[in-house]
Simulated assay, not measured.
Amino acid sequence: MRKTIKINELKAGGTVDDLFAVRLKKSIGPYKGGTTFHLWVSDPGGDISLKYWGDKDNVAIQKIWDGISKGSVLRVKGRVNEYNGSLELHVNPTSGDSITVLDEGDFDIRDFVASTPMDIEQMKGHLFSVIRKIDDPWLKEALSYFFADEEFVRNFCECPASITHHANWLGGLLEHTLRVVKLCESYCQIYPDLDRNLLLTGAIFHDIGKLRDYKVTSIIGSTDEGRLIGHLVIGAEMVHDACRFIEGFPSELSMKLQHLVLSSHGTTEFGSPKVPMFPEAVALSLADLTDTRIEDMIMVKSNPNTEEDWAQNKSVGSVYLR
């Protein structure tokens, strides 16, 4: 079975018979009509709350609940309701609604995890063109440590850039990295005192920790390592290991590369263990923020889920849609 509608296309008051991936199991418990449970489900159109309103057959409902896990793909027959300004899926078996857990092979993974609309091979070629123009021998060797490895390149080109925000699709990391690189190239033209080799290498490296932070099944999720340590620290560790592997690599340059990764979110409020402490680190953090914020706002404007002139989003705040 293939999906026919995305979450951002659902309308209040309508019915639904489609496939959704489970992002989160919330709770199960009694209500006046029997037993209810709550899930968050997703597809490339976003996330939505799903509430199952069961009857008093607690054993049967518990069996359904136990058969569902994070990443399960469900066939959901139900209604689309609006509650507190947000859409929800409501499943009421007494009205003929149902939830069915699909087996692997009964669905197409491409229906749940989107892919970049850009040409992967073209983007990869652009990235390698930037790498070839790095003329500092130590930085070129550090880049080669990663990008001469075919498996690393394949994983880098397939990795998403986020779980729920900007470029949260296959190939998103490559797409985001290239935009950050382009912004950094423009900074170097405006501010010629910036160390171009260092800044562009840092731009290429800044999110490599996401290769170990994220895992992709029917949803984009986080690994235990990603949740406990985070992609910035993981990425700095990967860069540190690469520099240690290269005989004679300058220790100060290694520290600068690690700092570029660790400070790339700009502030501790945004998750950076360190704030930028030299000009190239400031430039990289601003390029990363620029791409992230613009992409997030474009996504809200492209999928407003409202007929009003304004949309409210928890990540970017108020967005004017006209």
Score class of each variant (00 low, 15 high):
residue 42 S to G: 06
residue 45 G to A: 05
residue 46 G to Q: 03
residue 46 G to V: 09
residue 48 I to H: 00
residue 49 S to Y: 15
residue 50 L to H: 01
residue 50 L to Q: 03
residue 52 Y to C: 07
residue 52 Y to G: 06
residue 53 W to C: 07
residue 53 W to F: 07
residue 53 W to R: 09
residue 54 G to N: 07
residue 54 G to L: 07
residue 56 K to P: 04
residue 56 K to W: 10
residue 58 N to K: 14
residue 58 N to T: 14
residue 59 V to H: 07
residue 59 V to R: 06
residue 63 K to E: 04
residue 63 K to M: 06
residue 65 W to I: 09
residue 65 W to E: 01
residue 65 W to M: 03
residue 67 G to A: 05
residue 68 I to E: 04
residue 69 S to N: 05
residue 69 S to G: 13
residue 70 K to S: 03
residue 73 V to H: 00
residue 74 L to Y: 01
residue 75 R to T: 00
residue 77 K to F: 12
residue 78 G to R: 00
residue 78 G to M: 06
residue 80 V to R: 04
residue 81 N to M: 12
residue 81 N to A: 14
residue 82 E to P: 13
residue 82 E to T: 04
residue 83 Y to C: 13
residue 83 Y to E: 15
residue 83 Y to G: 14
residue 84 N to C: 14
residue 85 G to N: 06
residue 85 G to V: 07
residue 85 G to P: 05
residue 86 S to Y: 10
residue 86 S to E: 15
residue 87 L to M: 05
residue 88 E to H: 09
residue 89 L to Q: 04
residue 92 N to W: 15
residue 92 N to P: 13
residue 94 T to A: 11
residue 102 L to R: 00
residue 103 D to F: 01
residue 104 E to Y: 00
residue 104 E to N: 01
residue 107 F to K: 00
residue 107 F to P: 00
residue 108 D to V: 05
residue 108 D to S: 03
residue 108 D to Q: 01
residue 110 R to N: 14
residue 112 F to W: 03
residue 113 V to H: 01
residue 116 T to W: 04
residue 116 T to C: 05
residue 117 P to F: 06
residue 117 P to T: 12
residue 118 M to N: 15
residue 120 I to M: 06
residue 121 E to R: 13
residue 124 K to R: 03
residue 125 G to P: 13
residue 126 H to Y: 13
residue 126 H to T: 13
residue 127 L to R: 14
residue 128 F to G: 10
residue 128 F to T: 08
residue 128 F to L: 09
residue 129 S to R: 04
residue 129 S to Y: 12
residue 130 V to A: 15
residue 131 I to L: 09
residue 131 I to Q: 11
residue 132 R to V: 13
residue 133 K to L: 13
residue 134 I to H: 06
residue 135 D to P: 12
residue 137 P to I: 13
residue 137 P to C: 11
residue 138 W to H: 15
residue 138 W to D: 02
residue 139 L to D: 02
residue 140 K to W: 01
residue 140 K to N: 12
residue 141 E to P: 04
residue 141 E to C: 12
residue 143 L to W: 09
residue 143 L to S: 15
residue 146 F to M: 02
residue 146 F to R: 04
residue 147 F to R: 05
residue 148 A to T: 09
residue 149 D to I: 13
residue 149 D to W: 11
residue 149 D to A: 08
residue 150 E to H: 08
residue 150 E to S: 12
residue 153 V to D: 07
residue 154 R to H: 05
residue 155 N to Y: 14
residue 155 N to K: 12
residue 156 F to H: 11
residue 157 C to D: 11
residue 158 E to L: 06
residue 158 E to V: 02
residue 158 E to G: 05
residue 159 C to P: 04
residue 159 C to A: 10
residue 160 P to F: 05
residue 160 P to T: 03
residue 161 A to Y: 04
residue 161 A to S: 11
residue 162 S to G: 07
residue 162 S to W: 14
residue 164 T to M: 15
residue 168 N to W: 03
